[in-house]
Write a protein that binds this DNA or RNA. Sequence first.
DNA 1: CGCAATATATCAGGTGATAGATAGGCGATT
DNA 2: AATCGCCTATCTATCACCTGATATATTGCG
Lengths: 186, 186
Amino acid sequence: MTTSTTTRLLDAAEFRMRRGGYNAVSFRDLASDTNIKSSSVHYHYPRKEDLAVALIQRYREQFFEALDKNTRSANEAESKLRAFRLLYRKALIKDGALCLCGLLGAEAAGLPPSVRDAVNGFFAANIEWVSEALPASMPMAERRKAARRLVATYQGGMMLAKSMDDPKLFDAIATTAIEQSPALNR
Amino acid sequence: MTTSTTTRLLDAAEFRMRRGGYNAVSFRDLASDTNIKSSSVHYHYPRKEDLAVALIQRYREQFFEALDKNTRSANEAESKLRAFRLLYRKALIKDGALCLCGLLGAEAAGLPPSVRDAVNGFFAANIEWVSEALPASMPMAERRKAARRLVATYQGGMMLAKSMDDPKLFDAIATTAIEQSPALNR
DNA sequence: CGCAATATATCAGGTGATAGATAGGCGATT
DNA sequence: AATCGCCTATCTATCACCTGATATATTGCG
């Protein structure tokens, strides 16, 4: 089976952007990655921000598809949160790169508004998901607060682990974080 | 009093780099910021990575000078950690930008090794400082773990708050984080 | 003088983006 | 069945501009 050009373009863009950020991706790089010419890349994504927005959209969809799949049979908050942590872990360890939105979020001030919005949509959905996963016995305000803190810790943990080139650092940080989520210490 | 050219260069570079990252700073931008020519910038910092390393060094020194100053009369772990949190907060709120090393750490994979090393030195010093600030009654291994998690949470919290354009988000995340530092719940 | 700091001028290469040509497939018309 | 027009996807060629970096000249001060 052959992979569509847009898929190969997004694959190449994701690989590069999750390592170097928005400016580390050029139309010429993507063209040579996919064996077409840079003008053909513009045919599929006229402007660079179009490409970035499409990439973030796909990233978000794939993230939540995997998350839903891995929590289909999960009832307890603890197993849902574990699936969430393992998905972040996989992004770091298996892909060997940061979360796309973690990197773009750091660069947010210099990004086109449409890209920034897409990144923030990912974060909002993350926080929303974790809030829902926390036990209903916990007040909603408290759940949102814990959710925000969890996402912040995981994003910061990925950044630290990748920057310091020590994947175990993420586990040390993230595993502790989940144990200390107030809802789970009943 | 006049400010030295290198100081003005580092000021301009810090402003730009803390918003857009490494690639968002160009010699020509810095030249026009400081009313000199780009070749004169090269006189002070021959290569871009020289400039970045010097900038990170200064950032680190100023950070720990301020930290020492603000904890000179602090004995309790709680007040030391509060000073640490408030310094991160100031970097975000007053400067209106991310931590220089938080941004560069995210871009680490695409940076020159010397710059990456300088960034990691900042993180290592951060973790070390927090480890020392935590109560001696706590085992060192546990202190290091809590310190890593705290730094990760603050870095991630800054990124989330700045990206989502909601400074209060950092307070919500960071205040909760410090309250949950295991050592302080005695 | 001699040195530190600036300037002029230029280089090779990369950047996002656009205009216009070409090829091939596919359905509709003849 | 053959042809035509259209559409998708690619190509070639080029634009103006920005990038880090260098060689060389000039300035001004102690």
